[in-house]
Design a protein around this nucleic acid. Structure first.
Lengths: 215, 215
DNA sequence: TAGATTGTTAATCGATTAACAATC
DNA sequence: TAGATTGTTAATCGATTAACAATC
């Protein structure tokens, strides 16, 4: 089987999002070039990505949107509720607890964990528990995915603890390179970095009148 | 001049973060392979990235951390406070207002804007203003960068409005492909997508016993 | 000096795109 | 059928890495 990388999977998500919009506009089928245009890639890329997952359209007929969405949702695990835990109920963690938008996408934060006893208790109907309860909770609830929103220095030790508890995927918000032992995937989100990146190009543009990005 | 892409700039940020940690541990100079190790890239990559920006070390002596940080901070615009506005004070927008961590990185949200009058007023000492005040505010304050946290359907029209107001960079949180007219850079952050991506690999691992990522 | 590290060039790798035969 | 679109292969492109001469 062909190895799938993060970029391909991200594009599948974007295809899915675009298709949902097309569907709600009443479209029934779509050609690769329309979908490509909506997502900002080439039509070759769309067809290539689909064929990688054995998704086939009709020559001359394009792709049936409902069947296509069904398949993408299946691949992306959208057919069942995905339960995740949150570690770190500080500044960012609290914001993520408040941010209820994950639920409309089939992802539910079922509990949060923090060392600080002052943080314990319910928040927006999500329980914030002591770190020591984590292992038991993960085992009992069969949790596989965690969101990591702890300070830099705590990130690596907590990750080690999570992997030893059997966590298989971590979305890390700490601005630090983590080493995951065992079979655990770590994805990174770094808001400060994204903003810093943007500001670089804004400033570069001020100086040269060009983004330097060549779009 | 060589074109710089987003990935190179992101690595500069990561070098900077790692160097700050090394510095606070008392290190004075560093070799490319140590820095590479800390950031998770090859030493060739580190040296190549630096040479792209005319940053030179000492053969056999490595790089002086303070001089290196000075230069990276200059490139990334960290030497002056970067003022940004936030558009959309809904679910995510409010979370971003509360999330004060940008400030330690020299980025300040100076105002937020929202169509909904119920949202107007101060929140966590940041003014939430009517959308109609936006143009004047941007002009008067010389704002160049905006964070976009509005619903999907509103994202493109608001982006058009922002670019016509002279905004040069937008960090977009709406899960939709935007077309920026004129000289404006758009960076995307999509938390749902990142989580979806992670969950794909977690599920793939469950089935095959392998992440399929080949790290 | 001998040894180690930089800076840069060339080789490699992988992802994207173009092209086009198959076919509805 | 003629025309248009898919599916796939080959070509291209760009980014990463290896290698090594320069040199401290």
């Amino acid at each position: 089987m062909v190895r799938k990388n993060r970029k391909v999977i991200s594009r599948l998500s974007r295809y899915k999002n675009a298709l949902n919009r097309f569907q709600s506009l009443g479209f029934v089928k779509i050609f690769s070039d329309y979908l490509a245009e909506a997502v900002g890639v080439t039509s070759s890329q769309v067809r290539k990505d689909f064929s990688l997952f054995g998704i086939h359209g009709n020559k001359r007929g394009g792709y049936q949107i409902d069947a296509l969405l069904e398949r993408l949702n299946e691949i992306l695990g959208k057919n069942e509720l995905q339960r995740v835990i949150l570690v770190g109920a500080g500044n960012l963690g609290s914001a993520l607890i408040k941010y209820k938008n994950f639920e409309k996408d089939g992802v539910k934060i079922v509990a949060a964990f923090d060392i600080d006893p002052a943080k314990h208790g319910d928040r927006d109907s999500i329980p914030v528990l002591p770190l020591d309860d984590m292992q038991r909770f993960i085992a009992e609830q069969g949790i596989k995915t965690a969101i990591l929103a702890v300070p830099d220095v705590a990130a690596q030790p907590i990750l080690d603890r999570l992997t030893s508890c059997g966590i298989k995927g971590v979305l890390n918000f700490a601005p630090i390179q983590l080493k995951a032992e065992g079979r655990c995937v770590v994805n990174h989100v770094n808001l400060e970095l994204e903003l810093e990146n943007l500001i670089y190009f804004v400033n570069a543009m001020e100086k040269t009148g060009d983004t330097g990005l060549g779009n």
